[in-house]
Write a protein that binds this DNA or RNA. Structure first.
Lengths: 245, 245
DNA sequence: CCCCGTCTTTAATCTGTATTGAAGCGGCGG
DNA sequence: CCGCCGCTTCAATACAGATTAAAGACGGGG
């Protein structure tokens, strides 16, 4: 159970102190790790709803296609994330899941959640809160997609990624690795790969960021945050109402 | 408690059979109705997080502004809806709330939810499911905003409204009242009021819908659904895993 | 019944992003 | 070390939707 520290535990510990009992419960979710190579289709929309996943390693994304081939990436998943929460309400999966690099996932059945929900009210409250927080994040993204220019979208995108990575990795600086290619970023932001290239170049020329291979450095994070009116929804949640731990 | 039937109860009854105990619990949420006139600002983003609301009557919307005045409407609320769920996770309200016509709301404190969560597992599961379902709806909307044309956006918009209205009103046909003006629709779909006008006209010329004042009739609903690859997320949820009632 | 304000429609022009295609670049396998 | 392939960059053109302005339509209040 101990050995390597779990990203899921790190992720959740950011918000509340976990009891040993909580850690044991979470460990049941990470019992059966499985590797997938890069660019692998892990499940498809319409599949009869089966497992959720804890991400142990690597980046993935959830996406949907339109009948004519247009694609929208709706969520990017990092180590420590739980994949598939929204689908709990539906009878079928609503999105496709694909790895961008070699990944390690721990599939677990819906029913494992029930155990958590009945035996740890505090952990339940946290998981509910995370689901609701994600909804706020989607709402922020909607604002980005509905009303912001390409420049602003890309800026918001990198700020959001950095904010998320900082939750599971406390000593993250202003530099991070971005393993997505520009077509994938385009499919996430509702733009084209060509325009993503042009926009990154412009951000670089303006001195807002620098690039070295997959490494991105935000050299003027505060300015970027102001530019896109960025709110960090990850750093802090309201846990005051949680049942006592 | 009986008297006029509650829209909230109607809304939830669509998914599960409510016990008398459940109905009593829900009635506590609707204890203190309050009227607001049209175009009223009911709360603002950044407010210290206080009440949620049950909508008894009238349409409202939640929105956010960008610093330079651009606006994004993120959710349209109808009778029977609960407003404010996602904010439970945050310390402050994340959106503004405004009525589009005279409305009746029932404010209730977060703590009222706790009572429900501790005393009716079945009702808790339903409310969680609705929150997660809404997340799926946001994801669908993201796809619309990221990858669809104005034509497709407007089509999806009216289909979505109709699907939602049918939950609380079983004998809704293919006609409904749309009290939003075109600027508001534009702020919802990330377009301009002028282009909304042009697009509605085109849909009308193509025979997809007809308008009479605020009344909208979808004359070729199936074609529209195909056009935008529409999925009704409201009609059916997976309640199979709910604790027995 | 008419005025006035709000909303919708029409029209002309402008712009940001899409599209297409071709030219760099870099890493990996052979 | 070469050659291929995927990704990024650059350039030319196209177009959907924005912008601005002005002219209808509509409805409520005096």
């Amino acid at each position: 159970m101990s050995g390597q520290p779990s990203c899921l535990v790190q992720n959740l510990s950011h918000y509340i102190d976990l009891t040993d009992h909580d850690r044991e419960l979470l460990a049941t979710l990470e019992r059966s790790p499985r590797d997938y190579s890069e660019a692998t289709e892990i499940h498809s929309g319409g599949d009869r709803n089966r497992d959720l996943y804890v991400v142990k390693q690597g980046w993935l994304f959830s996406y949907t296609d339109l009948p004519d081939g247009r694609r929208q990436i709706v969520k990017i998943h990092h180590p420590g994330d739980v994949i598939g929460f929204p689908d709990i309400a539906m009878k079928h999966m609503t999105t496709n899941l694909r790895s961008v690099e070699p990944v390690t996932l721990c599939p677990f059945p819906k029913s494992a959640l029930e155990t958590i929900f009945t035996s740890s009210p505090r952990l339940s409250a946290l998981m509910l809160s995370i689901a609701l927080r994600d909804q706020v994040v989607f709402i922020d993204l909607l604002r980005v997609m509905g009303r912001m220019s390409a420049m602003e979208r890309v800026s918001h995108f990198v700020l959001d990624l950095l904010a998320r990575l900082r939750i599971t990795n406390k000593d993250m600086t202003d530099t991070f690795r971005l393993p997505l290619n520009q077509s994938q970023i385009a499919d996430y932001l509702g733009l084209t790969n060509v325009y993503i290239s042009k926009t990154f170049k412009r951000l670089q020329d303006d001195g807002m960021l620098s690039r070295d291979g997959q490494q991105i450095t935000l050299t003027r994070e505060e300015e970027l945050k102001e530019l896109v009116d960025f709110e960090d929804r990850y750093i802090e949640m309201d846990t005051s109402w949680f049942p006592g731990g």
